[in-house]
Nucleic acid binder design. Sequence first.
RNA 1: GCCGAGGUAGCUCAGCUGGCAAGAGCAGCCGUCUUGUAAACGGCAGGUCACGGGUUCGAGUCCCGUCCUCGGCUCCA
Length: 667
Amino acid sequence: MSQTITVQHGDARAQLEEGATAIQALKALEAVRGQIVAARVTTPDGASLQWDLDREVPDGAQVAPIPADSEEGRAILRHSVAHVMAQAVTDLFPGAKWAIGPPVEDGFYYDFDVERPFTASDLERIEARMKELLKEKQSFVREEVTREQALEEFADQPYKREIIELVDEGTIVSNVDAGPGEGEAGDGPPTFTVYRNVRPDGSVAWSDLCRGPHVPGTDRVPAFTLLRSAGAYWRGREDQPMLQRIYGTAWESRKALKQHLTMLEEAKKRDHRKLGRELELVHFPEELGPGLSLFLPHGALVRKQMEDWIRDETLRRGYQPVYTPHVAKEDLWQLSGHLENYAELMFPGMEVEGAAYRLKPMNCPFHIMAFTSRTRSYRELPIRISELGTVYRYERSGVVNGMLRARGFTQDDSHIFCRQDQVVDEVAGCVEFARDLYRAFGLGEPSRVAISTRPEKSIAGHDDKWKAAEQALIDAVAKTGLAYEIDEGEGAFYGPKIDIHARDAIGREWQLTTVQVDFNLPERFDISYVGEDGAKHRPFMVHRALFGSIERFFAVMLESFNGAFPTWLAPVQAVVVPVAPDFDGYATEVADRLREVGARVEVDVADETLGNKIRRAQTSKVPYALVVGGDEAEAGTVAVRPYQGSQRKDVAVGEFSKELAAEIATR
RNA sequence: GCCGAGGUAGCUCAGCUGGCAAGAGCAGCCGUCUUGUAAACGGCAGGUCACGGGUUCGAGUCCCGUCCUCGGCUCCA
């Protein structure tokens, strides 16, 4: 006799024969809308799991669809495509060993151990082979196996065997490339799942150790493309073999794929190194060395606006500016512990009059020196020392990237010395400050706030001290009302931290602000303040950089605005364009009048056609081109041609100057 | 640092499998033209083909090394 089971979706219920699959349940529950790739099943005991559509659902389960166009759905789709790619590589490169192939943001990758690195034409061949495999309409079939069966099946796949062993020893509890799915790690010996790609005729084309779930079949892959290949260390560790990684992306529709590829193109066009050169903002002469850049006059004007903003705001918020040197004796770095913990990121020393000196990789020790310049009273706290401090870090040659990852950069750095009972308010103040900064620079609200806890390699401080500091950070963020997530073990070696991210105009996320508690340095420098009780107490030290790095933030602004800075930030806010040399005089007059209200204005007096000058104004992305000729000179007006939007003729100079001044004041 | 791809004028690029003279457009400079909303016309100048070795009758082109750039790994502001 056949048993029946009950499934639910929200308030909907359905009775099904025992053995019914997730897709049958969803259909019975009338929960299928659009393309779905898998299901989410909540079992009666409360476990919520991703579930293959063709997998049997348990009695009493809540079943929900995972749509193809959700982030969760895309990840499943992408991971499925990664399997197809691995199958294609196995076909084309006999003997290839495959490692892991997880979905990542906007795509997927799979790592292979092959005889030689992949070439561009290999990628084309692999992609072509993948398209053939998709046409074969293979099904993804889930199978549970024991540890022994898994080890036997993947006997010639050393990386898979290693994953199985890692699961055994608990190093990996659940991994997309290993055994039981999320929440399935129950009692008893670990079980593993294998996904087989089965052809319509029932033959097995390829199998992989995998947690799943997957789309039901290869015909359910609407759009994908391979992007690039690169070397990657197995398990991300330098002491491990280097594998060959192929990156690709897959989407729920051709349209979505195309949009994503367009976004990548757009990002490439906006590259700050490209725009920085074209707009003559920054320069990376090879003569300086890798990771070192300089601001050209126009870039410097943008930077000055950023610096003015942060200087004004720090003053307004009770920070005390200081200036400190770029080098200091090695003894200082010995005392601070940098030579012990940070030496590999410091430039080598230099010797002067028998003493060893080092370029500073951080500003903290100097700010501590500012604090300890005299005895401090509890009445003074919090003391907020701030500086635009340029630091130098010996980044490894393969990692430098324009202004985003440099060897010399300037932090809007502050160290706040306070009592324990002030930490939460001070940290919350930093987070609010960052929020105001993002708003002012057009980035909107933070996209992500991550609190990082104690890492394995950490120093100083007892566990309870770390815990207290971590809690203080959590309380501080909670106070601001922002959502946050916890990154376990991602803190700095000297204390827990908050990283704040923002999204730019084309949706990319950037890590900008960092707020960190440091209880290493106060100990090492043995700093103290005199309390109400007349005794010495150790202050808390909060380190924070809101821009993060001025150079990096500048690059983010440049890319986000695509070089068309808002008027208050723009290096040149208006360019006056005379229609003919006869009107150069009037143009200069107009420029002078605008400069009187503080605007940055240039006059294009070149002996060129008007069309050419307009073009130059447009390509240089100046917010306003002001065209002047006979009519304007006579009437005391300008023809306003904004970078974006339509032109307005016969605007009185006085009127425009008021408008411009008002716009500049919106910073 | 590791894996891969590259480095030809200030910029963007062409120079095929080594062969009679290293090119174009833009930018620059000099002229001509005197201009109403995204490129007027002509001319000139500009390169030890990243650098150093090697193979060859002959190297921008092939080989080796170094430096630098790019995409990743690792890391990170």
